[in-house]
Design a binder for these strands. Structure first.
Lengths: 134, 134
DNA sequence: CTTTATCCTTCAATTTCAATAGGAAAATAT
DNA sequence: ATATTTTCCTATTGAAATTGAAGGATAAAG
């Protein structure tokens, strides 16, 4: 199960992508529509901004908006950014790999199956974008 | 990423299934071979026993052994038992479903994609057994 | 120069996770 | 019987992560 933070991030992006306007969108609006605590959401959006996914404008008429076209933002990117590894085991992760100290990965049946799960999951999450959420 | 507890459970079962003998296997042996803290492993194996996956015998010559044929134990069963939900969101979980309060699940793009991930993952985890780990 | 809204740091509550301690109960061997 | 071995059970601890709040700084607009 994804952490609440990740769920919130995905929901917020979904909301933004669903709107007809390109923004900017207020934290308070996103939060009330998607039932996300404002202050928590604030930190999440800031993180997305620092990663270059979103951009923002301060003051009246300000808010958050996409810094890239939503159709270019992979869901896998968001999840790795907020959640961390997508794989189920460290020894099977592409971006957060850690060597297994109790088995030979080449021969390990668990490793093999978990890699299969990973590849299946990535084939979806790396080929769907924020645009596909609408 | 799976919790350490779940990783340990899978590793312990892998170890047991790999042996030529049918056991019983000592907690201490499994723990030292798979680098799992003994006391932690103890509670995990007990949990697997209470769920009917394993059985045990006390005293000299005792230990843990399979209560069912490893080829009948789905990996999904183990994961749900120790980890909980396999799905990435509550609103797409089959065994731990929780309704979404901020979207219409029928129309939600996030819901749709996460269901796809879930189905893909389950198609592997429900069709691979502990026996497939060797 | 007031209002609006994001930015940033700090902090706090709670929960979860990982692991340990210590002994009770059961089985076996002597 | 008694000692040894091994699982069973309860409780607790310590650390870390999660979730979220407080309060003010900064920037933009009117």
């Amino acid at each position: 199960m994804l952490a609440k933070k990740t769920q919130y991030a995905l929901k917020a992006l979904t909301y933004m992508a669903e709107q007809h306007s390109a923004g900017p969108f207020l934290i308070a609006d996103i939060g009330s529509k998607k039932k996300i605590p404002i202050k928590f959401l604030e930190s999440i959006l800031l993180e997305l901004k620092k990663a270059g996914i979103l951009n923002s404008k301060k003051g009246k008429g300000g808010g958050y908006f996409f810094n890239q076209d939503p159709s270019t933002i992979q869901l896998a990117t968001i999840m790795r950014l907020i959640e961390g590894p997508i794989a189920l085991l460290p020894c099977v992760s592409l971006h957060f790999y850690k060597k297994c100290n109790d088995c030979n990965e080449k021969k390990c049946g668990l490793n093999k199956i978990m890699k299969e799960v990973r590849d299946n999951t990535l084939s979806i999450l790396e080929n769907r974008t924020v645009q596909d959420l609408v």
